[in-house]
């Protein structure tokens, strides 16, 4: 790589800082800080046990997977508010089909909920030129209604042991399958996000849609793809929930939306688009998970937990979003 020509003489006697902290570095520091804090204060309370750490990995898998998808949507300048409902509908469809048919039908059918919702979100957003915020808000209503209607509000038990092993309840060696899924999706998402032309065009689209269009990028297709990816990760989370809970219920995923967005943003993804990090999203999700876990183990009342969590999230987001002032 050429350095161009260095136009300016470096200041004398000044340390020349070669590069700024990589974006999202804050989340790594924050995660380590929070972890160490709990490790010290809770050393006798089971926080550091392998089992408890595996708990955190299990508990955060759903949010992590969805945060990866949400990182794509946010990076393209879009947002998907329907992920919680996609989780629920995927879970209901999968559980009903597991009961009436088998996993070979149920899993693809469940994932197709995400594909179809994502495509619809994307097409409506780009064709009607309505912000994805509104389209996905409305779509959430439709999808949520369908998942309540499908069994008339009744939860559906899942008895297929193979299914529950693969999707969320089993262990491979010492590792929960939930963790394996998280890592697998993480790697794929990271490669696509960082190393492909799609990833670069995604960031350009989110950073300045007009400039991206002038650069010959099919921004509509990129935005649709980002929403499909987001929805599909929500579907995958739905499959995992079913596996973990051995049942499906229309309320699944209902409260995950804000946690997912917070995880992505803490991880260094800009809500305005054009910037983000998949690794950061994982860390963001783990920060939230460790926080939940540690605060409960510390014996805080629920009110205190809520307050502490709120404060820490604000601090984390403020740190990770803070940009160097322009100059």
């Amino acid at each position: 790589m050429s350095d161009g020509q260095s136009a300016v003489v470096p200041g004398r006697g000044r340390l020349r800082i070669p590069r700024r902290l990589p974006s999202g570095a804050v989340v790594y520091i924050g995660f380590v800080g929070i972890f160490l804090f709990f490790a010290v204060t809770l050393r006798d309370n089971g926080f550091l046990t392998i089992d408890n750490q595996l708990n955190v990995l299990r508990q955060t898998a759903f949010v992590s997977v969805m945060a990866f998808g949400t990182t794509f949507a946010l990076s393209a300048g879009e947002i998907d508010l329907s992920i919680g409902q996609v989780v629920a509908l995927t879970a209901m469809v999968t559980a009903v089909l597991l009961r009436d048919m088998n996993a070979l039908v149920a899993v693809p059918a469940g994932l197709s909920v995400g594909v179809i919702t994502g495509l619809t979100n994307g097409l409506l957003t780009t064709k009607l030129r309505v912000p994805s915020f509104l389209i996905t808000l409305g779509m959430g209503g439709i999808i949520g209604g369908l998942s309540r209607w499908i069994t008339n509000l009744q939860p559906v038990p899942v008895l297929d042991d193979n299914y529950t092993f693969v999707f969320g309840s089993g262990n491979i060696g010492p590792f929960p399958t939930l963790f394996v899924w998280t890592i697998a999706v993480l790697l794929v998402a990271h490669l696509v996000y960082r190393k492909t032309t799609f990833g670069r065009q995604l960031l350009a689209t989110g950073g300045n849609r007009i400039a991206a269009r002038y650069s010959g990028i099919n921004t509509a297709r990129i935005r649709i793809a980002s929403l499909v990816i987001c929805s599909v990760t929500a579907s995958l989370a739905g499959l995992l929930y079913v596996g973990r809970l051995h049942s499906a219920r229309y309320t699944l995923g209902e409260t995950d939306l804000l946690t997912v967005i917070a995880a992505a943003v803490i991880g260094g993804t800009s809500m305005a688009g054009g910037r983000g990090s998949i690794m950061g999203a994982l860390l963001g999700s783990l920060v939230m998970g460790v926080l939940n876990n540690g605060l409960i183990l510390m014996g805080f009342s629920i009110t205190e937990q809520d307050i502490a969590r709120g404060v820490i999230i604000i601090v984390a987001v403020a740190l990770s979003l803070r940009e160097a002032p322009e100059g």
Binding site: R200, Q201, A204, G207, N208, I210, S215, G216, I217, G274
Partner: peptide, 20 residues
């Protein structure tokens, strides 16, 4: 408005139209 993604690097801006 139409040429640059201001927050992105010089390199990525130059390459924006030619990643493929």
């Amino acid at each position: 408005r139409a040429g640059l993604v201001r927050e992105h690097s010089v390199g990525h801006n130059i390459l924006m139209a030619s990643w493929t």
